[in-house]
């Protein structure tokens, strides 16, 4: 779903330009830092190293190491510091290298950042962005491979962003930075090299607006982040099998565009929710519930959920590979649902 203000940039421009998802994020940060001197970036090896994923390469050269700041390996400490800095006139962007490390910042995010505005009766604000990663398949084992965005989505006061394309990544990052609330921006580390059209001009994609990545009539595949490409791949396979799949990307788990999800399923009558987090008590459960509550009388059969297998992510490739949802899994599940009815 596109908002009117985005229409112009969505349409193919004369100067089509491709960037990777990582480059799109860096471009959004650089443009915002040029616009607003209050923005500072902090994290482990963010300056000259440009992060372990090299997403920020070159930013410290342009903005200096007093705006792109290397921190000690102290996730709770520098996140707490960034919260205090956000309350008192700066707009920090903190980098938590691996999403697994959000366990180290949970008190700061869930008890401090998320609550400051509410507990103070609306007086203090925390304009903070936390960038972190999700996604398995890098052979990084159990402490560097999880997709834990459900944890933050559970806490009122936080916003959670999950870009799935370079275009979305740039526009969503701009909105995250301009937001006066703590926003956690999850990047799939396997998608940093994914290429796509990214306009050179300034544009922002509002938080809380889903996007229909592909239109279809027979089944809705609701997919987030890393799973959007999986769903699109499955949709192509389904098309070859004569099934028309719609792929809906919520883009943010909170705020959540419930209407777009529900309207899509009212049209197709079938839905699968695919997310790389653990399915149990996770994002798939919440989205499936939203669909079930909003489109119950339109559903041909129960909403199906596909998430990471409920095991710690193993190291060995043949073990790790079976923990992550695949195009084939989505294809088979969708084909089964469409055949049955």
């Amino acid at each position: 779903m596109s908002t009117p203000e985005m229409k112009s940039v969505m349409e193919p421009a004369a100067a089509q330009r491709e960037l990777t998802l990582g480059e799109a994020i860096k471009e959004a940060l650089a443009e915002e830092m040029r616009r607003d001197p209050r923005i500072v970036i902090m994290g482990e090896d963010v300056a000259e190293a440009g992060t372990v994923f090299k997403v920020l390469s070159g930013l410290s050269a342009e903005f200096g190491t007093d705006r792109v700041i290397d921190t000690p390996i102290s996730e709770a400490g520098f996140t707490g510091l960034a919260i205090g800095a956000a309350m008192t006139g700066l707009r920090p962007v903190v980098d938590i290298m691996f999403g697994d490390f959000i366990a180290l910042v949970m008190d700061q995010m869930a008890n401090q950042a998320a609550k400051v505005h509410y507990m103070s009766g609306g007086k203090w604000k925390v304009p903070l962005v936390m960038r972190t990663t999700l996604g398995a398949s890098r052979r990084s084992a159990a402490q560097h491979s999880q997709s834990l965005h459900a944890w933050f989505s559970h806490v009122p006061g936080l916003k959670v962003v999950l870009p799935s394309t370079p275009f979305d990544a740039k526009g969503l990052m701009k909105s995250a930075i301009r937001d006066d609330n703590p926003v956690i921006f999850f990047e799939d580390k396997m998608m940093y090299k994914l290429k796509g059209n990214v306009p050179a001009e300034d544009y922002a994609i509002p938080l809380g607006v889903a996007d229909i990545k592909r239109s279809g009539d027979d089944i809705t595949l609701v997919a987030t982040s890393s799973m959007v490409q999986v769903a699109l791949g499955a949709a192509k396979m389904l098309e070859d099998a004569g099934i028309s799949a719609e792929v809906v990307d919520p883009r943010t788990t909170w705020p959540l565009d419930e209407e777009t999800l529900v309207e899509s399923v009212k049209k197709t009558s079938r839905a699968i929710v695919i997310d790389e987090g653990y399915a149990r008590y996770g994002v798939t459960a919440e989205l499936a519930s939203v669909i079930a509550e909003g489109a119950f009388h339109y559903l041909d059969q129960p909403v199906k959920r596909i998430g990471a297998m409920h095991v710690p992510i193993p190291f060995s490739p043949p073990l790790e590979d079976v923990t992550v949802p695949t195009e084939q899994m989505v294809f088979e599940a969708a084909r089964g649902m469409c055949r049955r009815s």
């Binding site: 007093d66 707490g80 510091l81 919260i83 800095a85 008192t88 401090q112």
Partner: peptide
């Protein structure tokens, strides 16, 4: 819980 926040306020003040 507030040790980071207080330190961050000092960070802002300095910056």
């Amino acid at each position: 819980g507030s040790t980071g926040i207080a330190t961050g306020a000092a960070f802002s003040a300095k910056r």
